[in-house]
Design a protein around this nucleic acid. Structure first.
Lengths: 76, 76
DNA sequence: TATTTTTATACCCATTCGGGTATATATTTA
DNA sequence: TAAATATATACCCGAATGGGTATAAAAATA
């Protein structure tokens, strides 16, 4: 199954910083292919690689409750 | 302050349900070795496998903010 | 329209995850 | 104490990740 908006979150954050996938790849240190697979919603990615990207945005992976309406992006 | 690490979270949740690693392995469908590596804090795990475990607790992986110096911790 | 930029697929392949299993080391219980 | 249970560590190995690269397609720009 798709990975809970994580892909959309990354894409939105990247766009908000006006970065291309190539630039995000360079800045985060992960491969370009990884950035693309991440934004496309691949679910078998490695935790450390995802965190490497999220760290640029000031985020990291953590356990969040299901059921709760997290459809709203509270980036305010 | 660190937001309860994923490995500690899993272990705490498992203990609260009075499950052994073997039982968690069976119920979640991941291998026993994976459960142990997860609770030991291995960072190169796969997203889908971690989510397979978290789902049992009603959680899943998501992007959470770093540098949360506010005191509104909902940690048990 | 044409050009440029960005993103999507496909391929090769070294690295390594993750399952299973066995053994060793706690930890708990009688 | 011993016995039972739980957890940690180590090994083999198939399968898949992720990097790099090339090409195609799409989107943006003039």
């Amino acid at each position: 199954m798709k990975n809970l908006d994580l892909n959309e979150f990354v894409r939105a954050k990247r766009k908000s910083l006006r970065l291309t996938q190539v630039e995000l790849s360079d800045k985060s240190g992960v491969g370009l292919r990884f950035v693309r697979e991440l934004e496309r919603g691949k679910i078998t990615l490695r935790l450390d690689k995802v965190n490497q990207v999220l760290k640029l945005f000031g985020y990291q992976l953590g356990a969040v409750q299901l059921n709760r309406n997290t459809l709203l992006d509270e980036t305010s």
